[in-house]
Amino acid sequence: MNEVFWGLPVISYLFLAGVGAGAYTVSASVLLRGGGGGFGHKHFQIARYGALLAPLPMMIGTGLIIFELGTFTAAFENGDFWLLFRWIRLFLTITMSPMSIGSWVLAVCILASLVYAYTFLSPDAKPGDDKSSLRLAMAWVGVPLGIAVAIYTGVMLGAMPSRPFWNSPVLVLLFLMSALSGGVAGILLLKAIFDHEPQTDDAGGTEPAGKIDRSSYLLSASDMILIGFELLAVFLFIMFTYLTVGAQKVAISVILPGGSLSMLFWVGVVLIGLLIPAIIELKYVLPTLLHKKVYTIPRRVEMIVALVVLFGGFLLRYVVVIGGQITGPVGI
């Protein structure tokens, strides 16, 4: 068994940064698309959940990777206090390393997401208030920044021929889709937890709480589409590596039937993390999509879908990070 250099801190970081960056991008997109376009107050509310959520997972995840740094561990072992802060070296330079560029992008993204969250902080925040222009500016910045954070992790892992499992351009697509889908799920979860108030639809009428919700249609429908793209990415990821020769073909066998991560991947990631939420969302979204029926989804189902998507997102990072490290180049 190969040694695993990057363990749970890095896995959690990849997941949390993905969710945070995804939430930022989704929130900013919803705000920019719906803020001035007459989608009404509920879209602003969705953007608000995303904005308030985004910085937290990114900051927690970033805090976690510091635990994986060799210098951080050594600081406790040999009592060198300054080693705790050696990571500052990341920000004293910039190199062409994906990790260097990624650190800068991540730092800028966290700062921008904090400013963006600040513009939503007041309970009275609404479209067109005094922070509106700053909010819109941060939203414009947030879409590319969030996507950049989501894809840099895939580029970082994919940049090494010595790790054939990761060395695929499709990994970037997989991570991006998972990040966006995780961001939507995070927003959906917050919305399902906190949105008890009677809903006001565009016509101004009130609906029973948690029964009818026009705005969550957007979230569930987009999550469903994102999961569709993620399934496509999984398919491409496996096919491209399986159809090649050499190290990549050998490495992918770790998640194919018979491989040590196969169960976790097919049951955990694909079935629980992708297919089940997609099918549930399809059941609720299709009547509205096809027959223009009023979109209804029980809050409990919404929560379960969101949690399952997040669980699948974590398992995906787990399988990818571990799978990449227990496989290596063939030959010597």
């Binding site: 990057w6 994986e68 740094l69 070296r89 021929p161 010595s162």
Partner: peptide, 18 residues
């Protein structure tokens, strides 16, 4: 060096350690 272990991942010869 900050000990990020990226080089250990990238080395095809497993020549590096912390």
């Amino acid at each position: 060096c900050i000990g990020c272990k990226y080089c250990m991942q990238a080395c095809p010869y497993d020549a590096r350690f912390i």
